[in-house]
Simulated scan of single mutants.
Amino acid sequence: MPREKKTRNADGRSSIYYSEKEDCWHGYVTVGVKDNGRSDRRHVRGKTQTEVTGKVQKLERERGEGRVRKAGHVWTVETWLKHWLENIVAPPVVTENAYSAYDVAVRIHLVPGIGAHRLDKLEPEHLEKLYRRIMKQKTHLGPTTSAATAHQVHRTIRAALNVAVRRKHLVVNPALEAKAPKVEEKEVEPYTVDQVKTLLETAQQRRNSVR
């Protein structure tokens, strides 16, 4: 078994070392600067040097692409959605109607369904399972309404996570990969010429027929 070997680099470069005491490998990667001005140095660990090297290289790639999750508060889906509602999209940023739709989607469906997940651990499959559950719900207005609800939930989580990505609380938006529910629009049959004539004739017999 290799002895404990530490290779810390003062210039902020990545380092990998083996700890005999812990019987595992550690890696450190500087990915930026924290809000307090100190270096944001991320730690990874694994049983083998190869495993840790892969994790270090992954962090280095994300650093180069500007996709490293911001350090600090660990958000859950619930805490992020509530913050988003209360502080980012509250009126007058969006209209009252738009906010009401977001609020219902968050309170009734997203928080009870996926709120406990850590924001950075949310997967497209979690969203797709939620959409399917909503689609199976029966409402007094029929299945089309359930599909419309699932679609609104998808639009809401997609919008909220887009902001999380822009603010670097999240690396990628899983809602962009999730299969979005479709809302089928019923085809409206146009009136026939005879039906239009009948409507006009009936209207002529009433007061304010022009209206």
Rank of each mutant, 00 (worst) to 15 (best):
K136Q: 15
R207L: 13
G72N: 03
L141F: 11
E184R: 15
I108Y: 11
R158I: 04
A180W: 04
R158K: 15
E189S: 10
T53D: 10
I16A: 01
T139Q: 05
V188A: 11
D23S: 08
S209R: 13
R132F: 15
I88S: 03
G46F: 08
Y102C: 00
T198C: 08
T7A: 14
L200Y: 11
I16Q: 02
P91W: 08
V193Y: 11
E128G: 05
I157Q: 02
P174F: 08
T53Y: 06
R167M: 11
T30K: 07
S100I: 08
A175F: 02
R132D: 09
H43N: 10
V165P: 03
A101V: 08
E62H: 09
V188F: 09
Y102K: 00
E123C: 06
E60P: 00
D35F: 04
E60Q: 06
R8V: 07
H43Q: 13
T145Y: 14
N36G: 05
P91V: 04
A180N: 05
V52F: 02
G64M: 07
R3F: 06
T149W: 03
T149A: 08
G113E: 05
I108T: 15
R8K: 12
L127G: 01
G142Y: 05
L59Q: 00
P2M: 09
V183G: 02
A160C: 00
G72V: 00
R63I: 08
V104W: 11
R155N: 13
L119M: 06
H140K: 15
A180G: 05
V196F: 10
H83I: 02
R3T: 10
P2A: 08
W75P: 03
E4C: 15
S15V: 04
E62Q: 11
A148W: 11
P112C: 06
P92W: 02
T145G: 07
A159F: 07
E86W: 07
T53W: 08
R158Y: 14
E62D: 13
E189W: 05
V104L: 14
L141W: 12
G54N: 09
V163L: 10
T156E: 07
I114G: 00
G46R: 07
R61K: 14
R61F: 13
E4Y: 13
A175D: 04
V93Q: 14
I134Y: 01
L130F: 06
A98V: 12
N173Q: 07
A203N: 12
S100E: 14
T144L: 10
D120E: 14
V163D: 11
T53H: 09
A105W: 02
S14W: 01
V56S: 00
H126G: 09
A105G: 06
T139F: 07
R155L: 15
D23Q: 14
P124K: 01
E96C: 01
E177D: 13
Q57F: 14
R132L: 12
T7W: 13
L85Q: 10
Q49S: 09
V196I: 14
T95I: 04
L81R: 02
K70E: 09
A90R: 15
E177Q: 13
Y28P: 00
E201A: 15
T192A: 07
H126I: 03
